[in-house]
Design a protein around this nucleic acid. Structure first.
Lengths: 234, 234
DNA sequence: AGCTATCAGCTTCCATGGAAGCTGCAATGC
DNA sequence: GCATTGCAGCTTCCATGGAAGCTGATAGCT
């Protein structure tokens, strides 16, 4: 039983089950790269770190495997999954398809919900602008994230939100990397405004195309960047 | 411990783990309505039926919950999820978004793969035609299913395939119902040919729109049908 | 040297039992 | 009659230990 690396937060005992606690702690640790991709842990080690027995860790690992964050190698251990450029490409295709659908749905919402959503989206976009002006990379990332999250959570289709959540969990680490790598922050604001404006005016086709164009352009910037830097896994 | 209903097949011991076996058996049982939606089972009962202990059943239930087929009610049992019309609507929106993306991707494949895929798709479509002529409802359903499966599995994006697999597992029961309900089998063949032809000719935009139109029309037929019959859950 | 067999040490897999939570019913008090 | 309380019987949750599988190193053979 090897305990290398920094310690993890013991699970908090707040009503939630130990499985949920372990799931949350492990997911957070993976997102924040406490475990490097490719790291192979054992359930026993993780259980020790979290202060629970192996069972809840194992069950949490099952859930994480279902989401593609880890792989359980039979009789060998728990492998933290790495993302290859190919995976990023796949994830962008999911984003393009689902977010375009979400934008279209949003534009079909009843007036009140539609206008409220558009306002929320614009608020997030404005925050991006402020962050950009202040040169605050992290704030820009958060605001951008908020925009896209609002879009899929506001559209009314819970399955869309869930799918996006899954691929976002997978790509969070890569996102943090590429945010830093990008030579200049992309001019996403105008495209965000196109999307929110189409939603506000209740034009489904326009909204779909705006969301779609936005993600396609972002992909066109990101993938070559990753290739050029030669990132093999992240 | 109550054992009502017909017995289930004990798990087959073929190299796969008991968890996998239990997962497969339960999923199959749910798909084939061995358990009615809304049925509340206990892990102990299922374990007895399958001839394993409670642990693998519990872990299988976790996976099924992740896929939305069951819900685990803490300290109460395992609930077989029912689908409401609202869920069918959501699922169709996922199908529209993802299959349109898959068709576009397919049309961008290298020549050899593209043509092979188009041929496979046409074969499935032809089988639909034969089944329709013979009045064989089940065969028509299988061929239609094959077409859509080939499309998402052939496009090269594994995440697309996985997403579709998940919603198909959820909607399988509803599909079996509505296949029988439909007054006349829809004229899907022409739309399938539009899609495969666009893929064959390597026209991404056309392929996307064809796949999209197909699912949108199917939705337009199905949802009112479900409403009119007054199906509340399935 | 190169190849095979063995084995020690790791891992998960799965069964099992105690602890604790939820539900519905029956008994109790008003 | 009506509300409350206590309890029995169910459930999952989680810890734990034995069984079995995988890996890599070492010893022995050709």
């Amino acid at each position: 039983m090897v305990l290398r690396g920094k310690a993890m937060e013991p699970v908090g005992e707040r009503g939630e089950s130990l499985v949920d606690a372990a799931y949350g702690a492990l997911k957070h640790a993976i997102r924040e790269s406490v475990f490097a991709p490719g790291y192979q842990a054992s359930a026993g080690e993780l259980a020790l770190r979290l202060g629970v027995s192996r069972t809840p860790v194992h069950e949490a690992a099952l859930r994480l495997q279902e989401e593609g964050l880890v792989r359980i190698l039979p009789k060998r251990g728990i492998l933290i999954c790495a993302l290859a450029p190919h995976d990023i490409a796949e994830i962008y295709e999911v984003l393009i398809a689902i977010e375009a659908g979400a934008a279209e749905l949003s534009a079909r919402l009843p007036d009140a919900a539609r206008l409220a959503l558009a306002d929320d989206l614009d608020r997030a976009t404005s925050e991006m602008g402020q962050a950009l002006a202040a040169g605050d990379l992290a704030a820009w990332g958060h605001a951008d994230e908020a925009f896209h999250r609002l879009l899929v959570e506001g559209c009314g289709n819970g399955r869309f939100a869930r799918i996006i959540q899954t691929v976002n969990d997978q790509s969070h680490r890569a996102r943090m990397l590429t945010l830093r790598l990008r030579p200049r922050l992309p001019a996403s604001e105008a495209e965000h405004r196109d999307t929110s404006e189409a939603i506000r005016r209740g034009l489904p086709g326009l909204a779909r195309e705006a969301a779609r164009r936005h993600r396609i352009r972002a992909r066109g910037e990101l993938l070559p960047l990753i290739e050029s830097v030669g990132l093999r896994h992240m």
